[in-house]
Every structure is written in structure tokens, then in C-alpha cells.
């Protein structure tokens, strides 16, 4: 079945099977490199995207369900090839080691800060609890989110 959706602001059309996950379509069919396969069961957050501004594990989302919707990956946060202020905070705080979890971390941080611009430490830990960093670099990640928050 053909579906169409806005991927980081650009309209794309792609042929999918009803059982295809959004992750499979983004990576295998559309060639995206910022959306990662990690666990395939919503435990690690490496495949995170925003669908109509709501966080979604793309491994737990059927691609057909995003028809006519807006899908945002971490690449969609850039404007004019410039990193967003949140992404810059991740760079400044060295909040990436191998980088595999980083896109997911950034998107969850964005969703959190959009809703709650001044989260407490506890709220940051709680929001990021669904994202795993295999390099265990949580301290700089939390630091980056805190520095991006409105103080």
C-alpha cells in the first residue's frame, strides 16, 4: 500500500506492507542514518522519532499509521544546516560517545523541554528512562538537557 507523509518537512511517498514498521521504512526504504535499530521492543529508544510532535518508538509503530502525518527525526531539528540550540548543548557537553543513542536522547529531550521548559533533575531522569546509552554516558546527557532548559 502507498503511504505519504512529511518526513522532516518533505513530502515522501513510499510503498509499504501493512506489517512494516516505521523503523524499517525509514532505514531500509528511505535510507535514513539517524534512526537506529536497537532492541526492537521499545526498551532502548535508539529508534525514536516524533510523529505529529508525539514521541514514538519507530520499531513499535506500523509505517501505515503515519499516513498523512508529520514525522520528525533528529535531522529535522536543524534549520539551514545549523544545529538547534538543544543539539548544540549536546555537543558542548560531550553528550555523545559512540553516538548510537544520541538521536533518541535529543528527541526525548526536545519533547520534554517543549512541554516543560524547566524540568527538575527527577523529571529529566524520568523522561529519559526509556532511552539506553550503552556507553553509560548519562551524566553529560543529563547535563546537556539541564543546560538547554530554561533556568
Amino acid at each position: 500500500m502507498m503511504i505519504r507523509f512529511y518526513l522532516d518537512g518533505q513530502l515522501v511517498e513510499v510503498d509499504v506492507k501493512p506489517t512494516d514498521t516505521l523503523l524499517k521504512v525509514l532505514v531500509d526504504k528511505l535510507g535514513l542514518t539517524s534512526v537506529h535499530y536497537g532492541c526492537g521492543e521499545g526498551s532502548c529508544g535508539a529508534c525514536m522519532v516524533l510523529v505529529d510532535d508525539k514521541l514514538r518508538y519507530s520499531c513499535l509503530t506500523f509505517a501505515a499509521s503515519v499516513n498523512d502525518k508529520k514525522v520528525t527525526t533528529v535531522a529535522g531539528l536543524l534549520s539551514d544546516h545549523e544545529l538547534s540550540p538543544l543539539q548544540k548543548k549536546f555537543v558542548e557537553n560531550n553528550a555523545a560517545q559512540c553516538g548510537y543513542c544520541t538521536p533518541g536522547m535529543v528527541l526525548v529531550a526536545k519533547a520534554l523541554l517543549d512541554k516543560n521548559p524547566s524540568p527538575s533533575d527527577e523529571e529529566i531522569f524520568d523522561a529519559l528512562a526509556g532511552n539506553l546509552c550503552r556507553c553509560t554516558g548519562y551524566v553529560p546527557i543529563v547535563k546537556a538537557v539541564k543546560s538547554a532548559a530554561r533556568r
Binding site: K54, L55, R56, V108, A111, D126, G130
Partner: peptide, 12 residues
Amino acid sequence: AKGIHGLALKQN
């Protein structure tokens, strides 16, 4: 509901 881990899981 609060104990469901992570913002993404809570939103879904």
C-alpha cells in the same frame, strides 16, 4: 501511570 518508564512510553 507515573511508573511507566520514559516519556515516550508514557505518551504511547
